[in-house]
Design a protein around this nucleic acid. Structure first.
Lengths: 349, 349
DNA sequence: GATTGTCACTCTAACATTACGAGTGCTAAT
DNA sequence: ATTAGCACTCGTAATGTTAGAGTGACAATC
């Protein structure tokens, strides 16, 4: 991906850099005159035009029409983020503020929601955070409460303090003592094990109970099984988006049609989820520019993501969606620090 | 509100009716020629123009500019929904389908989410459903689970099978037996009482415990108190919106600016909530047309709402937001039937 | 050889002009 | 009371015009 590097002279690089920064700032095709004013490169407009012509031939910039300024292409942005970025860490004060925001959150869900809102607020773009993959989550506690005659409320607490409730329809009436016994049994049996493993072992247990004709045990295991059946369902975790309306301020989404495309992409969760899953496998920061993502609807969008993890285990993705013309440096550092904060917020619980 | 009724002749009424229906259908100012083709009123275009002039003077219709057709005003729509609507009940088949959709939902939250999605889907507008007011909700059960040394998970089950979890930071370590005892105490003490009442009685209890120097009791009551303190917070219940993107298809929201206004109105939840609360007090169907709602940002929107209730007690509002130019008849019957279905879905639990 | 100034050319955005059509109000005729 | 006809108004869409921004090419300069 970085093989474009040596193809550009120092001057070309500097010019491309200045051009993209100018475009990101002004949202308008930038011409040679504009760049003359950019003091950093002391060149006349004519020389600039020459260099720009070269860059255009290389496919890094393009002119929307004969006599407009130049605009970065996807390849141009790619070169920019790969080679020209100058990431400066956020101000400690700002980081302090962010840390405080997370301080009060004990459960995963609020951390996620908070992170999403924070990303959106700090970048003025749309923040997006996937729920953690539950695979590695360990079971901390199970409890049952009788509701009505044929319904039992199951409470499942995981080791990350996530609580899940499920109402389980049951065939016969369970006494409260009986339920407590069942919970105790399951707790001593499975506490500290991974959810997936629990599920598998439960199935074995169910067979055994069936064979030994232990009616009571069978009923309990069946109930627990139902609980985890549901559990697995939202293993197809989805994600939280915040600040979509920020996108409406972006000039590239001025037409309702393009806007609609983007918004509908959010609703077709499956697609985006797939994309975010790709990011999951690549540990660390990832940047999709324009149609690099391979999903139409996000044609003029870029996606800056990072992964967050607990105990060295990557468990989710978070990031920002905005127009290709976004302030990458700022966005990247915000996403980066947010990922780190989410990781530590999840760990410290 | 219905005092406009006798002011219109039969002919004027028929014409207004036809005009509004045409406009709702075509989304364009309707002129005299268009209405000639509407067979129902056998008039020449000239007569139609005369009648239209009268209606304009009455403020029921207006022309956007000198020589365009006429468009209904807010007052026009108002007269229309008050006097000219011809609501036909939904087809039984469709109703059956809706009932099935609700069949699987046991807890309030999924019923709400489902209703919102259904409203949006059936009307192609934005569905909106408030969470039930919790005031009248009775406490069914309280349970505590120890998490870590200084954190206790509280589980609160209400009589509508709604489950709320809260993680409570505590000052000292609670034994599991101790917690069970505390839960038992609270359950026998408060089960079946209204949440608000519970909260008040808890405060008294706290004072008593303090005076009698019963350390243990005091700790328990304090914990329970924290739980309800939080509880009261989301008493400022909010609402669920579905299908906002549908609004982007409406031609009246063709400009990004107006669209943004509407979307931002959704985010300023407080305002909308206030509006929905107004509907709450008026039992049954309510319709706000255009700026009747009194909230800017919803300038070109209408709001069709109904209340849903359990045991004769109104507990929430649901409805649809769309452009003033919406197919009221269809929307009204959808909202009406949905409200009824939600009511019965909540009851049957 | 690299850089620069200059000039002719191209394209767009903005504004003015025109033509047209849709719709109205008025009046005279039925 | 209703209608047909006509003159009028206004908005839109098409066309023409202009100014400005930007380019490429080339000759002049360092």
């Amino acid at each position: 991906m970085k093989n474009t590097e040596k193809l550009l002279s120092d001057r070309e690089e500097r010019l491309l850099n200045a051009l993209i920064r100018e475009y990101i700032d002004q949202a308008q095709p930038v011409g040679s005159k504009k760049l003359v004013q950019t003091a950093s490169l002391n060149l006349s407009s004519a020389s600039i035009r020459n260099v720009m012509a070269d860059l255009e031939e290389l496919g890094l910039i393009a002119s929307p029409h004969t006599s407009a300024g130049r605009v970065p292409t996807v390849q141009g942005y790619r070169y920019f983020v790969d080679s020209l970025l100058n990431i400066k860490p956020l101000q400690p004060v700002a980081v302090e503020k962010m840390i405080k925001e997370f301080a009060g959150d004990y459960d995963t869900t609020s951390i996620i929601a908070n992170a999403s809102a924070m990303l959106s607020k700090l970048t003025s773009l749309a923040g997006i955070v996937t729920l953690p993959r539950r695979q590695r989550v360990q079971l901390a506690q199970i409890e049952f409460l009788p509701l009505s005659d044929n319904r039992v409320l199951s409470i499942l607490v995981t080791d990350d303090n996530e609580v899940q409730n499920r109402i389980i329809p049951v065939k016969r009436v369970f006494e409260s003592g009986e339920l407590r016994q069942a919970a105790n049994y399951l707790n001593t049996m499975f506490a500290g094990k991974e959810i997936r493993q629990v599920r598998n072992e439960l199935l074995n247990e169910l067979n055994e109970a069936r064979q030994s004709m232990d009616q009571k045990m069978q009923a309990v295991v069946e109930m627990a099984n139902k609980m985890f059946a549901d559990e697995n369902q939202d293993d197809q975790s989805d994600f939280v988006v915040a600040g979509e309306t920020n996108l409406m301020d972006q000039s590239e989404f001025a037409s309702v049609d393009t806007l609609k495309q983007v918004f509908e992409a959010f609703n077709k969760k499956r697609d985006i989820l797939e994309l975010l899953d790709q990011c999951l496998s690549a540990d660390g920061m990832q940047i999709f520019i324009g149609d690099e993502s391979g999903y139409q609807g996000l044609g003029d969008c870029s996606l800056v993501t990072s992964t967050y993890s607990v105990d060295g285990q990557v468990i989710g993705t978070l990031g920002v969606i905005g127009p290709t013309r976004m302030p990458y440096e700022q966005v990247i550092s915000v996403v980066d620090i947010t990922a780190k904060l989410v990781s530590s917020a999840l760990k410290s619980k």
